[in-house]
Structures are given as structure tokens and as C-alpha cells.
Amino acid sequence: MDFTLKIWRQENAKAKGRFETYNITGISADCSFLEMLDILNQQLIDKIEKPICFDHDCREGICGACSLYINGHPHGPDTGVTTCQLHMRKFKDGDTIIIEPWRAKPFPVIKDLVVDRSAFDQIIEAGGFVSVNTGGVPDANAIPVPRVDAETAMDAAACIGCGACVATCKNASAMLFVAAKVSQFALLPQGKIEAKERAINMVAKMDELGFGNCTNTGACEAECPKNISISHIARLNREYLTANIS
């Protein structure tokens, strides 16, 4: 398969970026999107040009490292997958593919398609944890958890913190990410102890970092590679409201 790629190139965080056009030919339909970029990079290296920087790590769809805003979709046109799990068969031969970095004020571009997502780490540091003393392994049935709560918490915990929700949101809001992290603990007895401070501190940090406000468009849940539902955002709203009035 042949493609025309329009890729955002930016030397460093301060440089002014621009789109560069690349033509790539003879790509297998079973090639993953990142492998296609690897091939392109090898060609660039062979020509003694600078390869294109992009984030990737596990390439198994579970780490959240890969990003890329492809043709108006974070992680590309496929649903429920990260960019590393996107394959070129999802495109048509001869397609023009526009590849951009995540765009949000709290996610500044470091180089080319790589953005700094440490804003998410700062939100987690503000309360996305359970403070427990380490010790012996507790008995599995010592704390009863209703099955439905356990399942819902697990659904929220599926969040890999990739930032697709921020990237796709027209307001660059991080609500789905924060909601997933708050929900995951709020539903479980271990997390309930610090639920109040967690909701208040994580939302305060999110606002401070300059993420936008949620307007319930639902774009995040449509693009989330882990299919996290905006019902978690409603739970965050409840948690935050009750934390403030209680």
C-alpha cells in the first residue's frame, strides 16, 4: 500500500513547528501504524535525515505510551485500540494521513510528535493513590466488596493514562482521566477512607494545570482506547460535590 503522510515536525519545545509531507510505498496491509513509521524513519536515516520522534513502549496496547492524532482521531480511526494496535488495513491505498501530536496547553510538544504528559503524573501525585502501610498479604475475603462495584472499579482502572481523552476533547479537558482514577478508588472500601481529599485535590490540580472544563460532549468515551464510560465523570461530579458539602 502507498500513503502520503503529512507529519508535524518540531525541532524542540520552543521551535516553531510545521507539517512535512512524506511519501511511503510498498507498505503491507498487516503492518501496524508504528511499524509503518519505523519503516519511514529507517528510510530517513538512510538518507541522513532526522527521523521522526514519536512515543511508544510496549506495543501491546496496554502501556499508554503511544499517542498520535491521526486524521482527526487520537490513536487513529479504529475504536478501542491504541496507535500500536492500529493496522494499515484500516486505511485505503493511496490515502493521505495527517499525523499530529496531542494538542493541549498542559501537554506541550517536546519534539515532533512527542508531548510531555507529566501533567497526568502531577494529578496522580495529588491524590490518585491509597495510603496503606505495607505488610503481610491481607486475606482475600477479609473486606467484602460487591461484585458489581469490583467490576466497575476494574473498568475504571483500565485507564492507561494515554491522554486520548484530552486530545480529542474540544475543551482539552482531562475529566475522563481524573474520573477514572477517582472512580477506581471511590468504589472500593480501601479507597473510601481518602475519597474526600482525593476528589478535591485531584480536581484542584487538574484545574491548576490548565485543562479545560467538561461540557459532556462524550468525545472522550468515543475515543478512549479502553472504552471508559463518562458515567465515571458523573461519579467524579458526585464525589466532588459531596466532598465539598460534607
Binding site: 494538542r103 496547553k105 461540557t215 475515543e223
Partner: peptide, 17 residues
């Protein structure tokens, strides 16, 4: 919300909303 995305995308959002 506008300030939260100072640089806009070239290809605008096509997410289902």
C-alpha cells in the same frame, strides 16, 4: 476551554459526539 488548546489541530476532531 479555548485557552486550554492554544494550538489547534490541522485536521479537526472527527470523534462521535
Amino acid at each position: 476551554n479555548w485557552f486550554a488548546r492554544p494550538t489547534r489541530y490541522k485536521k479537526e476532531n472527527y470523534s462521535q459526539t
